[in-house]
Computed example of a mutant assay.
Amino acid sequence: MHEAETRYAIDPVTAKTLDTEQLRSHFHIGNLFAEGNIALVYSHYDRLIIGGAVPGDGTLTLDQVPETGTSMFLERREMGVLNIGDTGKVKVGDKSYSLDGGEILYIGMGSGVVEFSGSGRFYILSAPAHRACPTRLIRLEDAKMVPLGSKEQANERVIYQFIHPDVVESCQLVMGYTQLASGSVWNTMPAHTHDRRMEAYLYFDLSDDEKVFHLMGEPSQTRHLVMGNEDAVISPPWSIHSGAGTASYSFCWAMAGDNVDFTDMDMAAMGDLR
Rank of each mutant, 00 (worst) to 15 (best):
A4S: 11
T6E: 13
A9R: 12
I10M: 13
D11G: 07
D11K: 03
V13I: 14
K16Q: 12
L23C: 08
R24G: 14
H26G: 07
H28F: 07
G30K: 10
N31R: 13
L32V: 08
A34R: 13
G36T: 00
N37P: 05
V41S: 11
Y42S: 13
S43A: 10
I50Y: 05
I50A: 03
G51M: 00
G51L: 00
G56I: 01
T59K: 08
T59E: 11
T59A: 09
L62T: 10
P66D: 06
S71E: 12
L74V: 14
L74G: 15
R76Y: 15
E78Y: 03
I84C: 01
V92Q: 02
K95C: 11
G101L: 02
I104Q: 02
L105K: 10
V113I: 15
F116M: 00
S117Q: 05
G120T: 02
G120H: 03
L125W: 08
L125Y: 08
A127K: 02
A127H: 03
P128G: 01
R131Q: 10
R131W: 02
A132Q: 06
R136N: 10
I138Q: 02
I138A: 05
L140R: 14
E141F: 14
E141Q: 13
K144V: 10
V146A: 04
P147Q: 00
L148Y: 04
G149H: 02
E152R: 14
Q153Y: 14
A154V: 01
A154I: 01
R157V: 00
Y160G: 03
Q161L: 03
I163C: 09
H164R: 11
P165Y: 00
E169W: 02
C171F: 09
A181T: 05
G183E: 08
V185Y: 15
N187L: 13
P190T: 15
P190M: 15
A191S: 11
A191C: 09
H192K: 13
R196C: 14
R197M: 11
M198C: 15
E199M: 04
E199S: 06
A200P: 08
Y203R: 06
K211Q: 15
H214Q: 15
G217Y: 04
E218C: 01
E218L: 09
P219H: 07
M227A: 14
M227T: 12
A232H: 02
S235F: 00
S242R: 10
A244C: 07
A244P: 01
T246Y: 08
A247E: 05
Y249Q: 03
S250G: 07
A256K: 04
G257F: 00
D258W: 05
N259A: 08
N259D: 15
D261F: 00
D264W: 03
G271K: 06
L273E: 11
